[in-house]
Nucleic acid binder design. Structure first.
Lengths: 207, 207
DNA sequence: CCCGAATTTGACCAAATGGTCAACATTCCC
DNA sequence: GGGAATGTTGACCATTTGGTCAAATTCGGG
């Protein structure tokens, strides 16, 4: 197959600007709520110019989504089968929490998509993601069988790590509204709490 | 102030139908994604007839939202200060999980709203909800001080219960895509897992 | 059965929005 | 420096959508 990466330098620059603008707009407005004019303005381009680089609004959205999905799953991939189990899992937890703090737009973009039934990435979920999760689940089951972690359902364990960490990005408005202080102040407290929560559950019973 | 409840029986019936249709449409399409025609069709009314009962799309949305917020928080209110702490919290957990199973549309509706910064209910969050959460947090702190539960941050404990349970409604597409089987099959496993997770964290250390 | 109030709707409107196109500007490379 | 390829845009279009309105229909009580 032929190469399909952007050739010219100006093409690469504008495509980058469009993806950045699209991330900003889609993550706060959702797919249907976002408009091409908003994205064009955020990217510093005219609307027809947008459509010179992408054939449609949907093409921008799906391109952005699939491009980000890769890096979004890196922390899960990075769980080291040869590492110390509990520290590996707590490390994964912390990396996910950092992503909620540092990349909340990406988190909200995915949340939005999945909320609506994941129409654009369902095949990615049922394919590569499922495979990856199943692989890590097998790893967790092995650790449990060896008595190195408590025998928890690995799938639901992963879900609970996803949900508790992404909560601070996706539901940030609620968190801030309840805790009061704006910004990223609660992430330290969240890390402390979640570390305790999962460490106590992962530690095998040997008392 | 005068009474503002619907007088005639036909008014009550149609308002009910509209709220039901609006819940269905708003929860799957989001506020901007939903159209009056969709809602009208789902309610079995014509669009002008819709607007005879509600002045605008936004009025339907906010009316629905604030009406549901009440019952949505009932489980939290029901935590009994005189009960056995750990069983009270695990009972709350189960009730929240049941709500994700039985009322996923309501859960997604709120998730959508909060994802976008909670523009329509931020005052409800910063007011009554915050007050309620603070009250229950004080209760949890009291229980911790008495050594009846582990000394966890009560706010983040509540957040983690919300996020883990609502995950099965809001991210149901992802859960189903990874676990395979459709429907509500995973709720039993989820309950088992979450009960273990939170019981192990809530149980005070006295080994 | 009849009248006023309540309810319903077809036709319509203005604004927003995704997308097109021909013309204009710029860049690249020989 | 010039011509082809690349990049940019103002003007425009069709459709969708929230909302209006006057006319028509139904309802409820005396």
């Amino acid at each position: 197959m032929t190469t399909d990466v952007p050739q010219t330098r100006i093409q690469r620059k504008n495509r980058e600007a469009i993806y950045g603008a699209a991330l900003e707009v889609f993550s706060t407005e959702g797919f249907r709520g976002a408009t091409l004019d908003q994205i064009a303005a955020a990217a510093g381009l005219s609307k027809p110019n947008l459509l010179y680089y992408f054939p449609s609004k949907e093409a921008i959205y799906t391109g952005l989504l699939s491009g980000l999905l890769e890096t979004w799953l890196d922390p899960l991939r990075d769980i080291d089968p040869t590492g110390e189990p509990i520290e590996e899992m707590l490390g994964y937890l912390c990396r996910k929490l950092e992503m909620s703090r540092d990349f909340p737009r990406e988190s909200r973009l995915f949340a939005n998509e999945i909320l609506r039934g994941a129409p654009h990435i369902l095949d990615q979920i049922e394919g590569p993601l499922r495979t990856l999760v199943d692989e890590k689940s097998a790893l967790l089951r092995g650790w449990a069988a060896a008595g190195r972690i408590a025998p928890l359902d690995p799938h639901h364990l992963i879900f609970s790590i996803w949900s508790t960490t992404q909560h601070y990005a996706d539901f940030g408005a609620q968190v801030s509204g309840i805790l009061g202080s704006e910004g990223e102040a609660h992430f330290k407290d969240a890390e402390d709490f979640l570390t305790i929560l999962f460490r106590s559950a992962l530690t095998p019973v040997n008392n």
